[in-house]
Design a protein around this nucleic acid. Structure first.
Length: 259
DNA sequence: ATGGTGGGTCACCCA
């Protein structure tokens, strides 16, 4: 089974890029974040025409939004609301006779890494803390967690750890919270496990760079985690950096895992 | 230290 995650930054604008990825990479289950559309406008027909008939999605006008697109039948679908907001940042679907897949879009957290000065940063930390409590209470089994978690936890997950220590996404309070969520929550960071500790890994490059590829100031904000029982069955991991060079690209690229 | 770009929607929000 091939599972992918991608912050698409508007699923309606980039629907052709989505179907291209599904077809050319033979994806079974694709998890999207930042779909940025209400459910009534979700492009279900285009996905069904391409052969992916099973959809679970939660969207809102302009902001956030998550979706699970599958060519395998979906069983139970549910979501939780986090940090006392009803924004669309989580959806979970079970693949019939297969694993449960959690799809998350963690708040970006604003610009100032201080919860007193910047409520968005407090929201991000509260969201992570609730996730940690949730998975500590209900340890994942036969489960996969993917999404844009908006944190690059390790020095090798950013172009310059030193220069990003005070930049939201790589501050110690965030990276420690994410590592605690992995360990206490019962997850394995299978992308990092696959490539090893030393390799620089990025999934996001800012739109603001003059030349994203030449400056290569990336961060690994997107993640694929598995429960300990499932992690040993990973066969392949691919970070599709080439999609950053597409026409009208998302600032995030797809990450694919085969189990 | 600053501003750089892009998406959604319709004067700004958010990333």
């Amino acid at each position: 089974m091939r599972i992918a995650t991608w912050n698409i930054n508007s699923v309606r604008l980039r629907i052709d890029l989505v179907t291209k990825l599904l077809n050319e990479s033979d994806i079974d289950v694709l998890c999207l974040q930042e779909t940025k559309t209400e459910d009534k406008f979700f492009p279900s027909a285009a996905l069904a025409d391409a052969g992916w008939n099973h959809h679970a999605f939660r969207g809102e006008k302009s902001y956030n939004g998550v979706a699970i697109i599958s060519r395998l039948p979906l069983g139970q679908i549910h979501h939780k609301d986090w940090a006392e907001k009803i924004d669309c940042r989580h959806i979970c679907a079970q693949i019939e006779n297969g694993p449960s897949i959690h799809n998350f879009y963690v708040p970006a957290g604003g610009d100032v890494p201080d919860r007193e000065e910047n409520p968005k940063f407090g929201h991000k930390l509260d969201f992570l803390s609730e996730m940690t409590h949730h998975f500590t209470d209900q340890r994942p089994q036969n489960a996969i967690l993917v999404g844009d978690l908006n944190i690059a936890p390790l020095a090798e997950d950013v172009w310059s750890s030193k220069q990003l220590l005070k930049v939201v996404s790589h501050t110690p309070v965030e990276t420690e919270a994410l590592k605690r969520l992995i360990s206490d929550g019962g997850w394995v960071d299978v992308v990092r496990e696959h490539f090893g500790a030393d390799e620089k890994l990025y999934s996001w490059w800012s739109y603001r760079a003059r030349d994203w590829a030449t400056s290569n100031r990336g961060r690994r904000l997107d993640h694929i985690w598995m429960s300990h029982d499932l992690a040993p069955s990973v066969k392949m991991v691919d970070i599709r950096t080439d999609y950053r060079g597409a026409e009208k690209p998302s600032d995030h690229v797809p990450m694919i895992v085969e189990v």
